[in-house]
Design a protein around this nucleic acid. Structure first.
Lengths: 235, 235
DNA sequence: AAGTTATGACTGACCAGTCAGTCATAACCA
DNA sequence: TGGTTATGACTGACTGGTCAGTCATAACTT
């Protein structure tokens, strides 16, 4: 919950002002040339980068903007030149973090006629490389917990990531059924299943990996085999 | 005038006392009869019940003990007569919440020689009934996010729930392999797979259910079929 | 110099945890 | 039994510390 503003009883200098809570707050570069614009963009991403680390480590509420500023090597006030408030910084961060996964997804979607097994493998690989092996896994955990508090975030993730992924998987599954690579229409009806072991991996990694190792690659491979194997005839 | 001095001889009875931060803090009912002990137990569970709701709705950090007190219909101070601090209240709550699942697990473990399919079905059913269809699903999401901050919690959950479940599933899988109900040893090597669609369901429910309905029972059934079906021969 | 960007001390809301004091009930007394 | 005292569960105003967001001022750019 965004804490109340500090309502300083200062001068009455509000005259319309910014529309409430509307995206970008980058220093208004009216006359700035590309040099300054570039610098601003760099600043912005420096802040996002620092924010990424801190949010991933501490979650939304436990992240202090003082800490973000410290890690970015700037003063706290500077953050507010680039983002209107903590929540927006958080949302932008999640948007940013989604990019590589989204990109990978689209890349896969653009390439039809590759064996179903290969595509599944690639989907799993993207997830492992871009999430499980990076700090993004912590953002994912955050999303799981905090998502409901930020409708804009879940909306974005559903529309731009989840829906896309499911479409890709579903059409893939359809093809698999037609070509006989898949034994039934389970994946067509429940494409979410493809992501299930991935989510499980992230959760296991965060909570229990120190107690018992989980061979994620192995599990994913075994899982794909389950999905594919139409029939396992003995010799 | 804030707070009278009036030095009542109240707090002069400390002699060793409990070690700091160690479990129970129930009002020391030394001479109280069962009536009072009972009342204390009721109070305790009233607090836990209120805390359950509030923690489930808001997560750890966003839960205000003032709110817990309000919902329990008591004063905030009273909470501290039963729990030493917020964290302990939280941990006890999670312990309490784990019981039914743990119980169901043990029940299943105690009954060997039931078809593998049935056992899997029961494991899924317990999870659905006791977690997905209750507010416990929110606690589970919380655990996913906050777990790493509370080692005592993950330790407890691993030892008492997860490990148990995996043992049950593993031995079940072994039996399945022997009897031929399972086509290979995937589940023996990766028993975590059984839980994967369940976790996915909880996450989907929290984030995307309002955007797209997921038929959990159907997905679980389809998934079990994948696990079992050793071969799907056409007629 | 004029305008833009950066700073960090400051403000006020917020909240976990405390403790002096209250009061219903139990225990004791005549 | 009726009256008195002791008990301790309960209360909620209060403290100390935290932190999002502000703004007067400084530093830099052009």
């Amino acid at each position: 919950m965004p804490r109340k503003p500090a309502t300083t009883a200062s001068g009455s200098s509000d005259k319309g002002e910014q529309a409430p809570k509307a995206g970008r707050a980058t220093p208004k570069s009216r006359k700035r040339g590309k040099a300054a614009d570039e610098r601003a963009e760099i600043r912005r991403s420096e802040i996002l980068h620092a924010a990424f680390d801190v949010f991933a480590e501490n979650g939304f509420t436990n992240t202090k903007l003082d800490e973000v500023a410290r890690r970015a090597g700037i003063a706290k006030g500077t953050i507010y030149l680039y983002f209107p408030d903590k929540e927006t910084l958080f949302v932008e961060l999640l948007r940013e973090a989604a990019r590589p996964v989204l990109g990978g997804m689209q890349l896969i979607a653009a390439n039809p006629n590759i064996p179903v097994e290969t595509v599944l493998q690639r989907i799993h690989a993207i997830f492992v490389d871009e999430i499980l092996l990076t700090k993004r896994k912590h953002l994912l955990r955050m999303l799981i917990q905090e998502g409901p508090r930020f409708p804009a975030v879940t909306e974005f993730y559903y529309r731009d990531i989840v829906h896309n992924a499911l479409v890709v998987i579903t059409s893939l599954a359809r093809r698999g059924v037609e070509t006989g690579e898949l034994s039934d229409d389970t994946l067509v009806r429940y494409p979410q299943l493809v992501m299930a072991p991935l989510l499980t991996s992230v959760i296991w990694d965060a909570l229990f990996e120190d107690k018992q190792h989980l061979d994620v690659e192995g599990m994913l491979a075994a899982f794909r085999k389950l999905l594919l194997a139409p029939n396992r005839e003995e010799a």
